[in-house]
Every structure is written in C-alpha cells, then in structure tokens.
Measured scan of single mutants.
Amino acid sequence: HNLTITQGKLFFHYNPKLCLSEIHKMEEVSGTKGRQERNDIALKTNGDQASCENELLKFSYIRTSFDKILLRWEPYWPPDFRDLLGFMLFYKEAPYQNVTEFDGQDACGSNSWTVVDIDPPLRSNDPKSQNHPGWLMRGLKPWTQYAIFVKTLVTFSDERRTYGAKSDIIYVQTDATNPSVPLDPISVSNSSSQIILKWKPPSDPNGNITHYLVFWERQAEDSELFELDYCLKGLKLPSRTWSPPFESEDSQKHNQSEYEDSAGECCSCPKTDSQILKELEESSFRKTFEDYLHNVVFVPRKTSSGTGAEDPRPSRKRRSLGDVGNVTVAVPTVAAFPNTSSTSVPTSPEEHRPFEKVVNKESLVISGLRHFTGYRIELQACNQDTPEERCSVAAYVSARTMPEAKADDIVGPVTHEIFENNVVHLMWQEPKEPNGLIVLYEVSYRRYGDEELHLCVSRKHFALERGCRLRGLSPGNYSVRIRATSLAGNGSWTEPTYFYVTDYLDVPSNIA
C-alpha cells in the first residue's frame, strides 16, 4: 500500500525493539523526510534493546553428524571492536523451508527459537588472519532439518551509529543413524509349514526405512522333555500350542467401542483428552525405555581390526524358502538304536541362519518350516543398504507352526516275539517326523474274553527296548493296539495285532 503524509511529521519514542533503520525507511515511504526535528525521533529510546544489523554474515563451514552440527561463519568486528559482546545463534526444527525470524513471537518477546549466546573469538592483530567464530550444536535429532541463523550482539553506541551483522536463515539436516526397533511384532501360524509375521514401523526411523531383515531359527525343545518319565503317576503330560491366527481386521481397528449394538453396526467412541494424553505418555515412556535398553543392555560386537582377528559373527547367506525346513542338525536320541526319531534339535552355532529381506511392506510369510516346531524370529529395521547396512537392534518374537495331521501315527506293522515265561516283546517304529517329539506310547492289549488293559511306555523305555515287553501273560489269544502321544496330543491307534500265548508248562520236552 502507498502511504503519503502531505502535512505533519513523524514522532517515535520509547520503541526499544524498533531499529532506527526501520524508522528511516518509514520517513522515505511516507514522504516526511526532512520535516522531523532532532528530538522527534529519539536516538536513545528507539532500538536500544534490539540488534540492528546492516551487514550480512556468511557461514564459512558446515559439518553434520547424526546428532551434531558444527558451524563456522566469517569474522565480524565493528569499528570499535570492544562493542562486540558476542553472537546469538538461533535454531529450531523446520520440516519445511518457510521459516521466518519472527515465527511464534508474542507480545512478551518470546519466540519459538532456541538461542545460544556465543563469546567472540580472540581478536588477531592481523586483519587478514582473524579467527572464524563458530559453535557445535549438540543433542539434535537424527535425520531432522533445522533452520539456523546467527547475528551479532553489540553494545549501545553513544554516537548512535547503527552497526551489526546478521546471516540469512539456512537449512541444515542432520545425518541418518540406526533406527529404533520395529514396533509390535506379531507372529502367527496359518499352516503346519508357515508363519505369518506382521509389525509396525519404528517410532524413530532416523532416516528413510529402506528394508527390513527377518531372521528365523528353529528352537530346540526343553531338555526336561527328553529326561522326564511322563508315565509316572502324578506327572502331567506336557503340551505345546501353536500360535493362533490373526483376529479379523475389524476387531483390530483402534479407537473402536468394545460393545456392539445388537441391531447392527455401531460407531466408534472418540477417545477423551485424558485417554489420548495417557497414550502419549505411555508411548514416550516406551521410547525412553527402549533407548535405555539399547544403550545399557546391548553391547556392540567388536569388529575385526587390522591384526587379522576374525569377526566372530557368522556370515549372512541367503537361502531359498524351500530350504528352511531342514535348518537344524538332527541327532538321534540314543545312538545305539537307529530307529528312534531325530527330534532332539541342538543347533550348531556355526550354522548360517536363513533370512529374508523385506522391502516396502511390514509383513512376511515364512514358508518351508517344520510342522509343530518353535521358531525364534528376529526382526531388524534398516535405513541404508549400501555401502553397508545400517540397521536397528533386533526385536524378537516366537511362534510355533501348526501340527501336521497323521504325523504322530505309527507307520509300519507292530511285530512281536514270544519268549519263555510268557513274555512277549512288542516292537514298532517311532514316527519319523512327529509333531514336536514323542513323549510316550500307549499300549492297549486284551486277552479274548477279558477286559482291555493299558500300559504306558516312556520315551526312554522305548529307546532301550525298541518297544516294550509284556510279562506274566496268561495263555490265550491276544490283540494289541499302540498309539503315540506327542507334544500336540495323541496320534491314531494302530491296526490290531494278534498273537497267541501258550502255557509254557505244557511245552513238550526233548528229553527222552
């Protein structure tokens, strides 16, 4: 807008934040220059609390790290170098490059900038070799853009010569660093050979998330399962459950009422301010606690030095998902009996873990797994792929695949051998790939016309006998059925096997 004052003059007093240069501009645009008398524009009460600059400061050096910015700028000295009290560095987070010096300023003089007072450097006698002032900004957020400017702080001049310097606002972004852990990993099994893994992005990506790394490792069953005799009275049979499938998407929606109208769909109840505040506090606490764990609990591995020492970490090797089922080394339970199943799973520490690289999504279907087997899954978020990966501390989750139908069934015939004193040795093959492992066998036998009897055969007993022995049988026709019990439950009964026990007292003698 054009402003013209045809008559009258300007009068400025007691404006401590208004620089004289701005008042002189007002004289020019209003056409009143030359009308004012000496005392109409006070030299001592206008701009006496402001830094009124008329020179431009330029930054000469900028260096960044993930949490620091090192700045240096060209030296500046007023005509009387004693008038320079120091520099004021202003900075704040700036997602967009549209910041002005006066953003967030209120009537009390406060604003949204963080201000650092910096002492002037030592003055050199040689004007050509003056030290460049600077400042190291610490405690910054990774991968965050900051708006920065600097200006001088000078003393009051009796001659009211307006001098000083100020830089333009520059924008500097800190470097990326390792992201925080992925949030809320959930693993479920939808079949006997697959596990579905879902997660949420890290709360602090500290860069642009480029991919996720998912490692999985087959877990050995508890050692007590191999040692305890679950045929003993009072000892509860062990059981394991597989990871249940995901709930429906509708039930997972946030901010939804727990109660549904019987007449149909209901609208979600909005969260109160107290609920939102509580969630923010919980989120802040979780982030602080995660940072504490990362800094205190997890110790970084030592990389190899120039002395030739090897990095103890196993090298990563990509495998196809079809090879995942046989990740671990199978060892027989008892070496003397080769027909026992290889369900003991000690994992070799030198073995390469299978892994998958996930790009542009937060889910993965891990296939080719062994049925009813526990897996430990390790999830890392990465925001750099080359020249070397920059990934987060791992988040861990466990899951067990679903049982395989008929995996616990005894394959092959049940054979028998009759000894003296009416002892019958029953023999059968253990299931080759049971659900988890076989903890015991149930032997059901009966003599024709009598009630059915049951015998429990422990895992250890089966390994020693290759089956079991029935003792003290009365003469007669017998039928026997056997079924295995694994961590997933009972298998199917075998087809009945028949044998006849004679009275050993009636056996004919070869003595003449």
Rank of each mutant, 00 (worst) to 15 (best):
residue 204 D to V: 12
residue 204 D to L: 04
residue 204 D to H: 01
residue 207 G to D: 03
residue 208 N to V: 07
residue 211 H to G: 12
residue 214 V to E: 00
residue 215 F to W: 01
residue 219 Q to M: 03
residue 220 A to M: 14
residue 221 E to R: 12
residue 222 D to W: 13
residue 227 E to F: 13
residue 228 L to R: 06
residue 229 D to C: 09
residue 229 D to K: 12
residue 230 Y to E: 03
residue 232 L to A: 09
residue 232 L to T: 13
residue 232 L to Q: 04
residue 233 K to Y: 07
residue 234 G to K: 11
residue 235 L to G: 06
residue 235 L to M: 11
residue 235 L to R: 11
residue 235 L to D: 10
residue 236 K to A: 15
residue 238 P to T: 11
residue 238 P to Q: 14
residue 239 S to Y: 14
residue 239 S to G: 13
residue 239 S to K: 05
residue 242 W to V: 14
residue 244 P to S: 09
residue 244 P to D: 13
residue 244 P to Q: 14
residue 246 F to H: 10
residue 247 E to Q: 12
residue 248 S to W: 15
residue 249 E to A: 13
residue 250 D to S: 09
residue 252 Q to C: 09
residue 252 Q to Y: 03
residue 254 H to S: 15
residue 258 E to S: 10
residue 260 E to I: 12
residue 261 D to N: 15
residue 262 S to H: 12
residue 262 S to L: 11
residue 262 S to N: 03
residue 264 G to N: 13
residue 264 G to Q: 12
residue 264 G to D: 12
residue 264 G to C: 02
residue 265 E to D: 06
residue 268 S to D: 10
residue 270 P to W: 12
residue 278 K to M: 09
residue 279 E to H: 04
residue 282 E to T: 05
residue 283 S to M: 05
residue 285 F to M: 14
residue 286 R to C: 06
residue 287 K to R: 06
residue 289 F to W: 04
residue 289 F to I: 08
residue 292 Y to R: 07
residue 292 Y to L: 06
residue 292 Y to E: 14
residue 296 V to F: 11
residue 296 V to L: 05
residue 297 V to R: 05
residue 300 P to K: 07
residue 300 P to C: 15
residue 301 R to F: 04
residue 302 K to R: 12
residue 303 T to A: 09
residue 305 S to A: 12
residue 306 G to N: 10
residue 306 G to E: 14
residue 308 G to F: 02
residue 311 D to E: 13
residue 314 P to E: 03
residue 316 R to V: 15
residue 317 K to P: 06
residue 317 K to R: 10
residue 318 R to H: 08
residue 320 S to W: 06
residue 321 L to T: 10
residue 321 L to K: 10
residue 322 G to D: 11
residue 323 D to Y: 13
residue 324 V to E: 03
residue 325 G to A: 12
residue 329 V to F: 02
residue 329 V to S: 13
residue 332 P to V: 05
residue 332 P to R: 12
residue 332 P to M: 11
residue 333 T to P: 07
residue 336 A to C: 13
residue 339 N to W: 10
residue 339 N to H: 08
residue 339 N to K: 09
residue 340 T to N: 08
residue 342 S to C: 02
residue 342 S to T: 06
residue 343 T to G: 12
residue 347 T to F: 08
residue 348 S to W: 14
residue 349 P to S: 12
residue 351 E to R: 05
residue 354 P to I: 11
residue 355 F to N: 15
residue 355 F to D: 03
residue 355 F to S: 11
residue 355 F to Q: 10
residue 357 K to H: 04
residue 357 K to V: 15
residue 357 K to N: 11
residue 358 V to R: 08
residue 359 V to P: 10
residue 360 N to R: 13
residue 362 E to S: 09
residue 363 S to M: 02
residue 365 V to W: 11
residue 366 I to V: 08
residue 366 I to W: 02
residue 367 S to D: 10
residue 367 S to T: 05
residue 368 G to M: 07
residue 368 G to L: 07
residue 368 G to I: 04
residue 374 G to V: 11
residue 374 G to Q: 13
residue 375 Y to F: 14
residue 377 I to E: 00
residue 378 E to M: 06
residue 379 L to R: 00
residue 380 Q to G: 15
residue 383 N to A: 06
residue 384 Q to I: 10
residue 384 Q to E: 12
residue 387 P to F: 12
residue 387 P to M: 15
residue 388 E to R: 14
residue 389 E to S: 09
residue 389 E to D: 08
residue 389 E to Q: 13
residue 389 E to Y: 11
residue 390 R to K: 15
residue 390 R to Y: 07
residue 390 R to L: 10
residue 391 C to K: 06
residue 392 S to V: 01
residue 394 A to Y: 06
residue 395 A to W: 11
residue 397 V to Q: 01
residue 397 V to H: 15
residue 398 S to I: 08
residue 399 A to W: 07
residue 400 R to T: 06
residue 400 R to S: 11
residue 400 R to I: 13
residue 403 P to S: 07
residue 406 K to R: 08
residue 406 K to M: 06
residue 407 A to Q: 11
residue 407 A to H: 13
residue 408 D to R: 00
residue 409 D to F: 10
residue 410 I to A: 09
residue 412 G to P: 13
residue 412 G to W: 13
residue 416 H to K: 09
residue 416 H to M: 08
residue 416 H to P: 05
residue 417 E to N: 06
residue 418 I to K: 13
residue 418 I to Q: 04
residue 418 I to R: 08
residue 419 F to S: 05
residue 420 E to P: 14
residue 423 V to D: 10
residue 424 V to C: 13
residue 424 V to A: 03
residue 426 L to D: 01
residue 427 M to E: 15
residue 427 M to F: 11
residue 429 Q to E: 14
residue 431 P to H: 00
residue 434 P to W: 00
residue 434 P to E: 02
residue 434 P to M: 04
residue 435 N to S: 04
residue 435 N to C: 14
residue 436 G to N: 02
residue 437 L to Y: 14
residue 440 L to Q: 13
residue 444 S to Q: 06
residue 445 Y to C: 10
residue 445 Y to L: 04
residue 445 Y to N: 02
residue 446 R to S: 00
residue 448 Y to H: 11
residue 449 G to E: 15
residue 450 D to W: 08
residue 452 E to V: 08
residue 456 C to S: 02
residue 457 V to F: 15
residue 457 V to M: 14
residue 457 V to R: 06
residue 460 K to I: 07
residue 461 H to E: 05
residue 461 H to D: 13
residue 464 L to T: 07
residue 464 L to D: 10
residue 465 E to A: 08
residue 467 G to W: 02
residue 467 G to Q: 04
residue 468 C to T: 01
residue 470 L to E: 01
residue 473 L to N: 08
residue 473 L to S: 01
residue 474 S to E: 11
residue 477 N to L: 08
residue 478 Y to A: 00
residue 478 Y to S: 00
residue 479 S to T: 11
residue 481 R to G: 02
residue 481 R to M: 10
residue 482 I to V: 06
residue 482 I to M: 03
residue 483 R to G: 01
residue 483 R to Q: 14
residue 484 A to G: 13
residue 486 S to I: 00
residue 487 L to K: 04
residue 487 L to Y: 10
residue 488 A to P: 02
residue 489 G to V: 11
residue 489 G to R: 05
residue 491 G to Q: 02
residue 492 S to H: 15
residue 493 W to A: 00
residue 494 T to F: 02
residue 494 T to L: 02
residue 497 T to A: 03
residue 500 Y to N: 05
residue 501 V to E: 01
residue 502 T to K: 08
residue 503 D to L: 12
residue 505 L to Q: 05
residue 506 D to K: 12
residue 509 S to I: 15
residue 509 S to A: 11
